[in-house]
Write a protein that binds this DNA or RNA. Structure first.
Lengths: 299, 299
DNA sequence: CACTCTTACGGCACCCGTAAGAATC
DNA sequence: GATTCTTACGGGTGCCGTAAGAGTG
């Protein structure tokens, strides 16, 4: 019986897929399969029922699971004994939205590189809904997405509150500086896909205020959206700070709306059953560096 | 980090000797040494201070020790999950006195062989005091010896109470059937070495009753003692039941003494910090089979 | 037919034990 | 010099990943 076998079993059991568990452990799927069958041989128990399409935990497996969890927890405790207050090691896969990717992600990476030099980060940029699902499946260790998760297996903790402002090219709106039903009818509304947090917030705001957009333009790339807005194709949203910087360049002007757009709460989300110290450290780093108001200077 | 490394560390730490730990784990001493230094490399901690003659636990090692203990305990729990109520596996080294070796040891071995077919037993016959020390050092998993241990690291649990009777060859004592000061002076007293439980009990009885033995004859082999007594060389002690069987053959007669010899309590002794299920199973088996009254028919 | 897990197999790494070395008492 | 631990080294086992196979829905 080895720790590797137990790790394989634990993740296979809690992710309910050998393939995903293998990816999370950075081993081939065949290796994971073998580790589990060897564990079964050692313990003389059948841990998974392979009769169906997917492997399902047997009763013996369910008994073993909490023991394996405690065991891996102890192993983590041991590993952190030496690096008391210091850096964690290993890999960390996490997800952020594009908004975060274009603002504080570089700062986060820089912060982690100094605090935990031996931690390999694998950021994944995707829409909030997709990230949440990948956290639940175990593909990602955590994600920072808009809103609290509705899934019971996922824990959420607020890390930032973001306010948005309307933006448009000066040529498109002339002297007008407010968003109303007429403007929404006249111009296109440029947004990220519906699964993105800001888009969901906006849709909700429109519905609550009985407003309807005329033409809609959805784009999955935030840089592209910014270009479209600057080019006068339509109006859209940006986090508050961005507009000041862009307005300085006279590319876009800020519009107001009544009522104002609500603030959007971003949360750090992770699997409730994943209590590795890694997550606490990463949460600290995120809290330290999160800042949606300053766009990265790269674009 | 592997379970083998932690096992090596745990036993090296609690036995305070790499060599003894290696023997207990059935590996070479070099292997054990390497496992520990690899663990130190993994955890980036120095667990043992090798500057002195013997390796001594560092502070970091002392922090790790309880974690390792819990870890190995969990591993044992897992192993027993499958064999619920059934047999344990592995090796078991234990010690018994010669009295036990010549009475119930075969029954114990037979009992364990049916209850736990995959357990390899390694009995060790020696004097009580020596056995106790080897239990403390970790060489033995447990021992059944006379009296309760005075060592704080050893737990004792009573498993049998043995009464002894005086024995002598008919030719030596004539019609006399009681032991008194005069008989003790006239004949030799044949005993096991002073470290043996029955001898300690006898010495205590002599002192309390202000008696003194004339000639003394100490022999470390119980079969030899029996032969000597039967040959009329002197008087000695046997557990109660033995005399009936030997008297039947008219080899020896039973003598009485006033006050009677006290009963000798035999205990199952094991390291207090060793909580493996193996020990509970073995204790059950010992309680099941312990019987000092019927000598094995082999001699 | 897409998907998931198992099996076969070649290669490489790791781990073990023997034996010799270093250091302490 | 005896004891205790470390280091060097050869040999074998075991583990990994690739790729093909079996079974399910």
């Amino acid at each position: 019986m080895t720790l590797k076998q137990l790790e394989a079993f634990y993740w296979a059991a809690s992710v309910a897929s050998f393939l995903l568990a293998a990816e999370r452990l950075h081993v081939s799927q065949s290796t994971l399969s073998k580790r589990i069958s060897e564990l079964e041989g050692q313990l003389r128990m059948t841990l998974f029922d392979r009769s169906g399409h997917r492997a399902a935990l047997t009763e013996a497996g369910q008994q073993l699971l909490p023991l394996a969890r405690r065991m891996l927890g102890l192993a983590d405790e041991m590993r952190t004994l030496g690096t008391e207050g210091g850096g964690v090691r290993g890999h960390c896969r996490f997800g952020v939205g594009e908004l975060a990717a274009l603002t504080w992600l570089p700062a986060l990476v820089a912060c982690v590189r100094t605090l935990h030099p031996e931690l390999v980060l694998e950021p994944c940029v995707d829409l909030g809904a997709a990230l949440e699902q990948r956290v639940e499946s175990g593909e990602l260790d955590f994600a920072v997405v808009a809103g609290y998760s509705s899934r019971s297996s996922i824990a959420s903790e607020a890390v930032a509150k973001v306010r948005f402002a309307w933006a448009a090219a000066p040529g498109l709106v002339g002297q007008r500086r407010s968003v109303n039903a007429r403007l929404l009818q006249e111009t296109a509304l440029i947004t990220m896909p519906p699964a993105a947090g800001p888009t969901r917030m906006l849709e909700h705001w429109l519905a609550v205020n009985n407003l309807e957009a005329g033409r809609r333009l959805t784009c999955n790339n935030l840089a592209a959206i910014a270009s479209l807005i600057a080019a006068g194709v339509g109006i859209g949203l940006f986090p508050n700070g961005w507009l000041r910087q862009m307005a300085d360049r006279q590319a876009v002007v800020e519009l107001r709306s009544r009522p104002a757009l609500p603030a959007l709460e971003y949360t750090f989300q992770w699997r409730r059953d994943d209590s590795r110290p890694l997550l606490a450290r990463m949460r600290e780093a995120v809290v330290e560096t999160v800042d949606f108001t300053k766009p990265s200077l790269l674009w």
